[in-house]
Structure formats: C-alpha cells, structure tokens
Design a protein around this nucleic acid. Structure first.
Length: 563
RNA sequence: CGGGGCGUAGCGCAGUCUGGUCAGCGCACUACCUUGGGGUGGUAGAGGUCGCAGGUUCAAAUCCUGUCGCUCCGACCA
C-alpha cells in the first residue's frame, strides 16, 4: 500500500474529550472516527487491526472445537420477555418497533437468541456437547459512553454459548475456555489476570473475568502477593481480620451520645479504633413489585460492597435511602443498630461472634456499648469491600489492589436460560432435561483499545507483531531525490513480492512529518531511505525503542526478511 | 438518573454578557515559489444557511422560547 493512496487521516490535535492514550492515538492515527455518542467508524487501518484480532480469536476458538455462527443483530423482543431478562437489563436494552408495530431489540448479548436457535434442533444427549460462537456487533445503550472504544454503545464482541448434558461437562468446557482465552490474550501480547468475578445480570454460578492490567482500567481488582488468588473488587473475599480486644474495657449498656452520628464522630467520642464500632448502612432496595429499606451492618472500618449487597438482597437495584424514608421505616438515622426491628437486616460475616462492640441503640442520642454478636442469629453474609493490605483467604498473604480493563468473561451459566426458554434434550434415560450451559464473551473492539493502553508511548501507538496493520513502513526522506525514490520503490516491490505487508510513504512531505506519522501509526519497524543512501546505507528504525540502525542498502532486504 | 458545559469552516477556537462596523483566528486543504533528517518559509486562494425551529426587533451568531446533538463530574455498567 502507498500512503499517498491510503485513507488514513492523521491529525496533530486530538478530540477535546479524548483523555486516554488509546482514544487519542486511535483517532489521531486515523484508525477510528466517532460518528455519534459511543459509536465509532473503523477506517482502513482500524479495520485491519480489527480483522487481525478477530482472526486470532477465531483460530483459537475453532481449534478448541467451537463453531462460528452469525446471529441477527436485531432480535425479537418476544425472546427477551420469555427469558424474563428485559426488566433486568433495563434501559441499556435498545428497543424499537418495525412498520408492523412489532417490538425488537438491538442485541446487547445473545443468550436468548442462541438458545432459541438450538432448542428443538438439538434433541439428544448424543448431539452434545455443542459450543457455538459469533463475532458480531452488539449494542448497549450505555448511560454514559466514554473513553473511545473502551466504553462505547456499539461494539464488536465474540460471544460463545456451550450446551451440555451435565454440570461436569460444562465445567470441563469452562476450563477449556479459560485456557483458550488465555491463549488469545497471550498471542495479542497482553498482560492480564483471570480473576474471580460477580456474575451480575447474566446470572449463573462461577465466573471469571479476564482483566488486562492497565492504570486507566475502570475495574478495581484484588491480587494476592503470594498465591494465584485474584478477584474483581466486586467479588473479592478476604480472611477475617478481627480486632484485638486487649486493653478494651466496656461496661455494657446504653450510653448518651448526643450529636454523635457518624463512625468518625463515634470513634473520636469513645477514643476507640473504628474496628470496634458497628457501621449501619441503609439502602432502599427496589424489587419488581415493591421497595423496602434494607440494613447492612459492617465493622466500622469496612465499607459496603454494593454489588455483594445487591446480590444478597436479590433486588433489582439498591439506591441511597433518604432520612425521611428511614424515619418512616421506624429507624433513627445516626443511631441505627443491629437490634432494629421490622426491617430486613444483613450482617457482615466479619462480625459473627464478635464481642465488645459499640453500635446504635435504635433510640435517639444513644449508642449501645459492649454489644456482643455471640449467639445472635443474624443473616451473616460477605458484604465488605476488600482493601489493600487485607489478608488472602487462600494463603494468608497480603492482598494488593490494581486496575484492569475487562477484556473477557466466562460463566458457568447452568440451566437459567434453557429452563426459562424451555430448551430441553432427551438424556440417556430418555427423559427431557434442560441444557446445562456455559457462556463466554470477549470484547474484540475493546481489545483493540486495550492493546494501545498497554503498548504506547508519548508519540503514539506501538502495535504488536500479531496485530499491526503493516509490518514495515518505508519512508522516503526526500521524495525529490530520484535515487532515494527509485530505491524505495524497488525495496517496496521486493518486500511485497516476498510476502511482507508494507506501507510506502511516498508523499511529498518533509522528513519530520513522515517520521512523526510513522511513530503515531506504530508499525513495528520502518526503513528510512535518506541521505545515507549516497554512501550506500539506509536505516532500520524499531518503533518500540525508536533505535535507528544503519544497514547497507544491498543487504537491507535480506535483513528485513530475517525477522 | 442527578448536576454542569458546549454546538460559529474538516479539526481546535475567539466573537454572545453590552444586537448594527462581525463572518474571524490557528492548524489542515488548493496553486505557485522556497526548503529537504524531526510537522520549513512565503505569496495567492477555496471553504461557514453561526445545530435546528419559532419569537422579539428597523436590525439577531448575539436577546427569548422550544427542540436536537455532543460532552464533563457523579450514579450506573457481563
């Protein structure tokens, strides 16, 4: 390809809303262009990268025995009603009507569509297992699209669905997919961790996320310093930390604590470590048909993990409760304690059997001192947000926090959807049973941005060998120089004949302009055909290091063919 | 969903408060000259119903109303 003919509009300036390297460089380098909020066009260079990622994903999945299909991007709304998930997905699900007034959605994921495809077509255990996947456009009407390709509304994703006759076989496939996804990310040249995850709106039991490590990631992940434990902050567990009760003396009873309502105030008032306090977090839980106040009790120095909290309540959503709402429920804000009555309560497991605590007395201006959880039959759950320095449940070492970008997610789904949609097969005993399913997803367009988040410098992109649009760029330093031009043309033809993907910068521009574009594009290497040619030399530049190496013009072709 | 901001040339912006002399700047683009190893310098050009609709006025980019779009912080987010 000749750069003079390539549609790759590079710019010096980035869009004003672009803050992340991947967003800035992909737009500046002419890989992508925004057309609407959270919707991007892929220009030739971007499309090339996308195709490469896609090809790697396909190759590895096919090797693992999966079969590619392509489902309609538009899905009848009927299927979403059938699975009961239309409510849960809420306004992220883009609905519309056709001319006959029938309802449709733009697919944000395709569990329903895929189950529909398989039900009544796969009827026997003899046809299982089956793993179908597609690489298709998805649409989620994000409340707030941002960060370029990392959080768009329209995006490209690989989504796979496997069908099994037993949980064991599904788990075998799940393990296979963990390996397969790892292979894909390895080939893409990414640093990542597979972490324990919350299963969220999709339902199901076990799930793991593939987190590409990046400072700009939107997810907090917890990693053990010693062992292989890693988890999304939403799902991360920790060992019970406890609090020393030495040198603590308390006379049990209610204590007058006027205007002492927060944990900080309470700790200061009693001159005590917040670990000895009981924090009450009140939320309003919204269910399909009603709403109610729910209380969560934690150690004073812990914070509530809302995802865990939501999951224990089984509600659709948790929102902050106002003081009026609390009072209406018979609670006294600032003085709520575990003995509160007529309200749903959950207590963090950390507090089980703890003694010598201070908590709200459920009456105005009083706290209970010397409170004990021993023998108290509360609903103990894991509710806390793990902090840096907490203790690993697996090995007892220290946990650290880092950030990541979710690139993939695998789920042990079970029978949730096959049951809801009535998808069954005949088992070995001739009885109808719902399929046991697994579901797997990998964000193809997001990976493109992710690669740049991890591989860039202050000049632009740095593509990996497996993802670069072109292997080599040839820069003619002075296109008015006939000798340079002719040599570059010859080298270009020779490399192409040898099967290399080459981009020839034949534009009538100055050297600085061209080398800057090369750095912005980020192809692995460039050959500079410049003034050294008079002495029989050209240069090879490595994009990653920006190191230039003089090479004799006669051997440069050979040299380039080696790598 | 709560709270802000912005729509003026392909991109980034000034002009709006105080209506008329206001269709402007930088980059990019076209032609010619110049330069030729880190976005060279110059001359001459092309390009905009000032997001859209309505209103006020002798007069609207500017004031009013509505509407659409984009965006930032937060909430939310397989």
């Amino acid at each position: 390809m000749r750069l003079s003919k390539l549609f790759a509009p590079t710019t010096k300036e980035a869009p004003k809303d672009a803050v992340l390297p991947s967003h800035i460089y992909l737009v500046r380098g002419g890989f992508i262009a925004q057309i609407g909020s959270g919707i991007y066009n892929y220009l030739p260079l971007g499309k090339m990268v996308l195709d490469k990622i896609r090809a790697i994903v396909k190759e590895e999945l096919d090797n693992a025995g999966c079969q590619e299909v392509l489902l309609g991007f538009v899905t009848p709304y009927e299927l979403w009603k059938e699975s009961g998930r239309s409510e849960k997905f809420g306004s992220e699900l883009l609905r519309f009507k056709d001319r006959k007034n029938n309802d449709f959605v733009l697919g944000p994921t395709h569990e329903e569509a895929m189950v529909d495809l398989v039900r009544n077509r796969v009827k026997s255990y003899k046809q299982l297992p089956l793993h179908l996947y597609q690489i298709n456009t998805k649409f989620r009407d994000e409340a707030r699209p941002r960060y370029g390709l990392l959080r768009g509304r329209e995006f490209i994703m690989e989504d796979g669905y496997s069908f099994h006759e037993s949980v064991e076989d599904m788990q075998r496939e799940y393990a296979l997919m963990e390996k397969t996804y790892s292979k894909i990310l390895d080939r893409l040249g990414l640093r990542y961790r597979a972490v324990e995850a919350d299963s969220g709106a999709i339902g199901g039991s076990g799930s793991k996320e593939f987190m590409v490590l990046a400072e700009n990631g939107e997810d907090d992940i917890v990693i053990c310093e010693k062992c292989d434990y890693a988890a999304n902050i939403e799902a991360a567990k920790r060992a019970k930390k406890g609090v020393s009760n030495e040198e603590i003396e308390m006379t049990p009873g209610d204590f007058h604590t006027p205007d002492v309502r927060t944990i900080d105030e309470l700790a200061a008032f009693f001159r005590i470590d917040p670990g000895h306090l009981v924090k009450a977090v009140a939320k309003k839980a919204l269910f399909e048909d009603h709403e109610e106040i729910v209380l969560f009790f934690l150690r004073g120095d812990d914070t509530l993990q809302e995802t865990k909290a939501l999951s224990v309540t089984g509600a659709l959503e948790l929102t902050d409760a106002t003081e009026e709402e609390l009072e209406k429920a018979g609670l006294i804000p600032g003085y709520i304690g575990p003995e509160a009555e007529n309200v749903t309560k959950y207590v963090d497991q950390e507090l089980k059997d703890e003694d010598l605590m201070i908590c709200g007395a459920n009456r105005a201006e009083y706290h209970s001192v010397g409170y004990s959880f021993e023998g108290k039959d509360f609903d103990y759950r894991d509710l806390v947000t793990v902090k840096e320095g907490d203790i690993c449940v697996k090995c007892g070492s220290r946990l650290t926090l880092t950030r990541g970008i979710e690139a993939g997610h695998i789920f042990q789904l079970g029978t949730t959807y096959s049951e809801a949609l009535g998808a069954t097969f005949l088992n070995r005993n001739g009885k109808a049973e719902p399929f046991v399913m697994g579901t797997y997803g990998m964000g193809v367009s997001r990976l493109m941005a992710t690669i740049i988040e991890q591989h860039h410098d202050d000049k632009g992109c740095i593509w990996t060998e497996e993802t670069t649009p072109f292997e080599i760029m040839i820069i003619v330093s002075n296109s008015k120089n006939e000798q340079q031009r002719v040599f570059a043309e010859k080298l270009y033809e020779d490399l192409r004949a040898a099967g290399k993907s080459v981009l020839l910068d034949d534009r009538n521009e100055r050297f600085g302009f061209k080398i800057s574009d090369f750095e912005l594009f980020g192809f692995p290497k460039a050959v500079i055909v410049g003034k050294g040619l008079a002495e029989g030399n050209v240069q090879i530049v490595q994009r990653k290091t920006l190191e230039k190496e003089d090479v004799s013009a006669e051997t440069v072709l050979e040299k380039l063919m080696e790598s």
